[in-house]
Design a protein around this nucleic acid. Structure first.
Length: 168
DNA sequence: ACCGTGATTGAG
DNA sequence: TCAATCACGGTT
């Protein structure tokens, strides 16, 4: 959650050939640990919830500083950065940056696909984060995460979403 | 409010 | 095997 907060105001840089796109991160969501019922790392088995490594969520169980990029709704890519210690699956979903609102629009605008999954955050992969502007707490809204009703009454209400106020 | 689109998951 | 679901976005 600390990372989700810290990423607000940082600059997401995407390099495509000789050109780069730089966008200030404006919206993030944290998914933290093996108890977070909203997390892809936690499988909803009958009568039991458990953190289980699968081909899709595997990278979440590894070292921090790698991308978790997954495909959903048959057409959208989602960009996350793994943040937890090894074996403690956690990630931050980047939901908005610059003028772009929405996680699927962001990946589309930055040409982000599953090719970046499991890659390290850095220039080698052509996608990285730099220090940007300082955004104070009073300019940040904390809300429940979006689209996680399946996580149940407790976990769906956690204030794990951070968004810069006054976005159009 | 409703649907596209296909990977992932859990049930049989 | 098969059917439901989905960390969404565009259209009605």
């Amino acid at each position: 959650m600390v990372v989700a907060r810290e990423l607000i105001g940082c600059i997401l840089v995407r390099r495509i050939g000789k050109k780069s796109i730089r966008l200030i991160i404006t919206e993030t969501e944290g998914y933290e640990g093996p108890k977070d019922l909203a997390s892809h790392a936690v499988l909803h088995r009958t009568g039991e919830y458990k953190a289980v490594k699968t081909p899709r969520n595997e990278v979440m169980f590894g070292e921090a500083g790698h991308f978790y990029v997954y495909f959903t709704y048959g057409m959208h890519w989602m960009l996350n950065i793994v943040t937890g210690k090894k074996g403690h699956p956690s990630a931050v979903l980047i939901r908005g940056a610059g003028y772009i609102q929405g996680p699927a629009r962001l990946t589309k605008a930055l040409y982000i696909t599953g090719a970046l999954n499991k890659k390290a955050v850095g220039k080698r992969g052509g996608l990285w984060v730099e220090n940007g502007v300082v955004v104070s707490n009073r300019n940040i809204l904390r809300t429940p995460r979006i689209g996680v009703a399946y996580a149940g009454p407790v976990w769906s209400k956690k204030l794990y979403r951070f968004v810069v106020k006054n976005e159009p």
